[in-house]
Design a binder for these strands. Structure first.
Lengths: 350, 350
DNA sequence: CTGAAAGCGCTTACAG
DNA sequence: CTGAAAGCGCTTACAG
């Protein structure tokens, strides 16, 4: 077990002053006689005194800590956003308490309850559905400041940092259309646990409609395609969906697994089938061929959300219930090519 | 700002009893008159009372929180281990405070100081060098319990959960040798910030020696090969290293980036050059060809380390200063093939 | 079975 | 410029 740490009282005694003085030395600001200050500082060093955040928090009613709740740590898109959160928090002297929900909505409320009991002052989080969320309702009720990341609330105004999922996916879809694709299929991780995925799907629909192309049935999967069973399932779905020439996946990780599965099924990517992702995880750019995707700068999203949250917290100001849209960028990659059998010249759908 | 939470005093007053009784209801164990208990429970519910961990910690001198320090969140191998840490912590009612060091040794001590001031009871961490670590020395001096993950301390005995880096890499190297490779090059992320990488290199050396093959100069890189400059550098190194037929990378992420770079340089993997990784990140299995690697089960490492730490913490027992070696598994993948130009029959180096 | 009281480690008006 | 004292939200011997 840990040895008992020195307390402010012990420092005061050893330095021959009051705890108030030690406290003032630690926290700066107050006027202290220079000699006394040195004595105290020396004593602090000698005893290896480290102020206890618990004692301080109880008195100040501030913990300088925030919670961070994400669906999963094993999807790099979330790990990257946390990386941004951690960087900003550290820089400002705040601590991050981490919790993962494994995409289960019930766990969101549990995680919040648990973090609130730890006296966090605010939260950065990604939830299942920001427009129907008991977890966020709880935060609103208790007036706990938070900023959403990735989520894009449509109905209830809530603070969020995200890309415009629909319009970015729409633009991506338009690229495919320009390359002659008409049989484009949207491949989704479970819609029910991702508002992002649903928004992106809407962008796909809009682009298809605008191009006069018929939307194909969504291929909704609840797996990353890594097993033989998954591959068989995927093969069946492709056929029954009507042999798409392009698959737009709702996120990068899914896209990467789909590409591997397709290859094993004998499809060439992108010659036979084009595949696109969404997120911009760093690994996508390290693949060969590099993944074609929309880069929403995951780390930056985390950075920006945390800056926003902390500036509110540090100024004791409310956080505007608005969406900060971050720029996205089309990353060409090489998993996207012209539709098979298509002539050089662009055929415009009438 | 957050609305002021109900306190135990308010609950006591509303329920018409003492705070001691409320405390007993919350914490269970004590005998309470059934009607009183119900009244208190009802009041707690009505006021939405949530005990403050700060108040409790100050009194009990236990925070039920642990710190987790890792080099980086954007390498999935660490994100996965944290995932394991978080799962176990949550299951046991503990909270995880997270900090990243960006592979900078100085930041390790900073992170520890910061977390200790937050009154964590123990730590899970991966450091630069467990055999020469001011950070770990600090923990030892203050008798703060911790368990290392991935690190493999050789000199000073310290609690760690890891694979046997040398012998696993040795076995991996033997596979390459069996496939006829002799010009095998070890590609390392910066040695100075990874004891794992150095240990793995030793395994490579041992296997090469045992096979009577000459070890080639290490290709030490301080980048993930993602830019044109990196590729040029890599190309030069390959030539000056003596055109290896196989590259053994110190970790999966590096291997993945090297594979992409090789492809862009015109090498076919594995036909011209075989490449192997180390770690077993999930993404490696989703690539095509799948990455050949040693799977050290990153999530399980985190799980096991945390179980170990928490069992020590909960029983107030010291943690043995020993290494728990976890099983590793060779994952065949498809980035490894016979050495180019090699006949079916195995030529044994004399 | 229950409560009054002390005290965990701090900070901060208040007084001097 | 400095200190005595109160109090933040809890838990826990102690007494009854």
């Amino acid at each position: 077990m840990a040895s008992r740490r020195a307390t402010i009282g012990q420092v005061a005694e050893a330095a021959g002053c009051s705890t108030a003085t030690v406290s003032r030395v630690i926290n700066g600001g107050a006027m202290i006689r220079p000699e006394l200050r040195s004595t105290v500082e020396e004593t602090i060093r000698r005893l290896g005194y480290r102020p206890s955040a618990v004692g301080r928090s109880l008195k100040t009613r501030r913990s300088r800590s925030i919670g961070c709740i994400i669906p999963s740590l094993t999807n790099p898109v979330f790990a990257s956003s946390i990386s941004g959160v951690e960087m900003v928090a550290r820089k400002h002297g705040w601590t991050v308490l981490l919790s993962a929900t494994d995409y289960q909505r019930d766990r969101e409320t549990d995680a919040i309850e648990s973090l609130l009991s730890r006296d966090i002052e605010g939260l950065i989080l990604t939830v299942t559905n920001p427009d129907d969320s008991p977890a966020l309702d709880l935060l609103d009720r208790e007036k706990v400041p938070y900023v959403l990341v990735y989520n894009e609330p449509l109905v209830k105004p809530r603070p969020a940092v995200t890309v415009d999922n629909a319009s970015s996916t729409r633009q991506l879809t338009e690229k495919l259309v320009t390359l002659g694709h008409r049989r484009i299929c949207y491949v989704a991780g479970r819609f029910s646990s991702s508002d992002r995925s649903r928004r992106r799907y809407e962008g796909y629909l809009a682009a298809m409609a605008a191009a006069g192309a018929e939307a194909m049935p969504v291929i909704e999967v609840d797996y990353l395609a890594t097993t033989e069973d998954h591959r068989r399932d995927l093969a069946d779905r492709l056929v029954s969906a009507g042999k798409p020439t392009a698959l737009m996946c709702s996120n990068d990780l899914l896209a990467i697994s789909i590409i591997a599965a397709l290859r094993q099924l004998g499809y060439r990517v992108p010659k036979d089938v084009s595949v696109t992702g969404f997120d911009g995880i760093a690994l996508g750019g390290m693949l060969s061929p590099a993944l074609t995707t929309i880069d929403q700068q995951p780390t930056k999203l985390g950075l920006q959300a945390t800056q926003w949250l902390l500036s509110g917290l540090e100024q004791d100001a409310d956080i505007d219930r608005e969406i900060q849209f971050i720029d996205f960028e089309f990353r060409p990659g090489a998993t996207l090519a012209s539709a098979p059998g298509r002539s050089r010249k662009v055929r415009r759908a009438s």
